[in-house]
Design a protein around this nucleic acid. Structure first.
Length: 564
RNA sequence: CGGGACGUGGCGCAGCCCGGUAGCGCACUUGCUUGGGGUGCAAGGGGUCGCGGGUUCAAAUCCCGCCGUCCCGACCA
């Protein structure tokens, strides 16, 4: 492609709205433009990168026997009502007029096809996938293309007759994802994840470390343990049980509101303190006990409660129910609340907690003796520096971009939509479904996050919109024009995807800067300097390393460099 | 949805406090110039100052309302 004819609007300056490197560079390099919040137009160069990412994913899906579909984005609302997902908040962007919705994902459509056409265990297993645009009612799109209202996703669905079959399909996907992200050049890791409101029995996320990622993960460098913070655990010491359990005593704690104040006031370790958090679960008052300053993990809380709506209790309601304020609530003698506690508190005694009376706390609490605890669950959020649950080495906590997610879904949607098959014994069973997603734009953005410098993007061969960027240093030099055209043609004919800066109105410096912003792996610089010796310069974008090669050897040299 | 910020030619910004001619840099057009790291000079084109209302002789500027965009948080299969 000749730059003199191409629509590749590069910019020196970037809209103030773009705050992270990938977003800024995708705009500076002319890959995309924003249309409205969370919605981007991909320009020709950006589309080429997207297509590269898609093709890698497609090939790896095909390699595991995946069959490509293209499912409609516009869906009848009734399908979603049947699975109960019409009312999931912030999910469906609806087209009211005809009871149509823009599909946020495609389990429903897949299940409806399966319901009509999968009849026998002999039809199974199947892996069906598509690469298609999704729409979601994101309350707050952000970080460029990392979280949008419209985005392209490879979604696939495995249909199996048995849990073992699901396990196999799931494993195939895990393998395909590993290969795809490896080929794309992403430094990724796999974490255990929450299956959340989606339901199902197992789930893993493919993560690319980035300070701008929205997910937080715990990682162990020693043994490879990796988990989303939503489900991560650690081996923190429990709040111990001491020998001599004394009787509960009331302690006057004037103006003590927070755990830190309480620890300071009483001069005791945080681990002796039982913090009370008050919620309503499906409307019912709920007290959650945590150790000292441990952070409650609401994903774990929700899982411990078996789902349902969990929301913090308002201050007025709390006072009405207990007569006390937030900093003075405790489990002893508390009426009308269900009480659950973090596992770290299991068996503990000599604890201090609120007295349900302002300015007072209770000491020497033995949870078994003095309170009614419905259950002990892992409810705390892991923090950096805590011991790894597997090997006890210290955990790291880091942010990451989720580029892929795989789910063992089970039969939730097949049951709702009556997608069943007959097994060997003639018995009708729901199809066992797995669901797997890859964010195509996220592959590109995550790659740019991990591969750029102050000058611009640094593409690898796998994702680069073009492999080689030929620069004609001056279009006023006949020799340069002649040689650069010849090289451009030779490369193109040899099947090398080549961008050719043949603009006559741009200064050499301008062209060099543009080439660095665009970031193709190799730059072939054709100018009078080298041509005097019948040579051109090849620059590797990643390292800045330059070599002079004979004009006649450019094609073979370029091919060699692209391999390595 | 809570907190914060911003909205002025395509992009980045100043002007707003203290009301009175819309301005700068980049980009764009034309001519000359330069030619290995965003050339230089000159002449141009382009803006309902987000939208609506109010105050005023007069509003980009003051007041009210709305909309949009971004950031933090909440939420997120």
């Amino acid at each position: 492609m000749r730059l003199s004819k191409a629509f590749i609007p590069t910019q020196k300056e970037v809209p103030a709205d773009a705050t992270i490197p990938s977003h800024q560079l995708m705009i500076r390099a002319g890959l995309m433009r924003q249309l409205t919040a969370g919605v981007y137009s991909f320009l020709p160069l950006g589309l080429r990168a997207l297509m590269k990412a898609m093709q890698i994913v497609r090939e790896e899906m095909n390699a595991i026997g995946g069959q490509e579909f293209l499912l409609p984005a516009l869906n009848p609302e009734s399908l979603w009502i049947q699975t109960g997902r019409r009312d999931v908040p912030n999910f469906i962007l609806s087209i009211e007029e005809r009871d149509l919705v823009l599909a946020p994902t495609h389990e429903e459509v897949i299940a409806s096809i399966a319901a009509n056409h999968i009849q026998s265990y002999k039809d199974l297993p199947q892996i069906w996938y598509q690469i298609q645009t999704k729409f979601r009612n994101e309350p707050r799109p952000r970080s460029g293309v990392l979280r949008g209202r419209q985005f392209i996703m490879k979604d696939s669905y495995s249909l199996d007759a048995s849990p073992e079959g699901l396990d196999a399909s799931y494993e195939k996907h895990a393998e395909a994802y590993r290969r795809a992200f490896t080929r794309a050049g992403l430094k990724f890791f796999v974490v255990g994840a929450s299956s959340g409101a989606m339901g199902g029995s197992g789930s893993q996320e493919f993560m690319v470390e980035s300070e701008f990622g929205e997910d937080t993960v715990a990682l162990c460098d020693a043994c490879g343990y990796a988990a989303n913070l939503e489900v991560a655990t650690s081996k923190v010491e429990p709040a111990a049980r001491t020998e001599n359990g004394k009787a509960v005593e009331e302690i006057h704690t004037p103006n003590v509101k927070t755990i830190d104040q309480l620890a300071e006031f009483l001069k005791v370790d945080h681990r002796r303190l039982a913090k009370s958090l008050v919620y309503r679960h499906n409307g019912q008052p709920l007290l959650v006990l945590m150790v000292g300053n441990d952070q409650l993990n609401e994903t774990k809380l929700s899982a411990a409660l078996g789902g349902g709506e969990v929301e913090p209790m308002g201050a007025e309601q709390l006072r009405a129910l207990t007569g006390a304020d937030g900093g003075s609530i405790g489990p002893v003698g508390l009426k009308g609340f269900r009480v659950i506690a973090d596992k770290r508190l299991e068996g503990a005694n000599n604890l201090i907690s609120g007295a349900n009376k302002n300015d007072y706390h209770l000491g020497n609490i033995d949870l078994q003796r003095d309170a009614t605890i419905e259950g002990y669950f892992d409810l705390r959020t892991v923090e950096a520096g805590e011991p790894c649950p597997q090997c006890l080495k210290l955990l790291n906590v880091t942010n990451a971009i989720e580029v892929g997610h795989i789910f063992k879904l089970g039969t939730k949607y097949s049951e709702a939509l009556n997608a069943r098959f007959l097994d060997e014994n003639g018995q009708s069973l729901p199809i066992i479904v797995g669901s797997y997603g890859i964010g195509i734009e996220r592959i590109v953005a995550a790659f740019i996050e991990q591969s750029h410098d102050d000058q611009g993007i640094i593409w690898n061969t796998a994702l680069a919109p073009y492999h080689v960027h030929v620069i004609a240093v001056s279009m006023n030099s006949k020799e340069t024009v002649l040689a650069s055209n010849q090289i451009y043609r030779a490369l193109t004919e040899a099947g090398v995807e080549t961008l050719f800066d043949d603009r006559s109105n741009a200064s050499p410096g301008f062209k060099f800067m543009d080439a660095d912003v665009l970031g193709m792996p190799l730059q072939v610089i054709v100018g009078e300097k080298g041509l005097r010796n019948k040579q051109v310069e090849i620059k590797r974008r990643a390292t800045g390393e330059r070599t002079m090669v004979a004009v006649d050897d450019v094609v073979s040299e370029v091919k060699k460099l692209l391999q390595g």
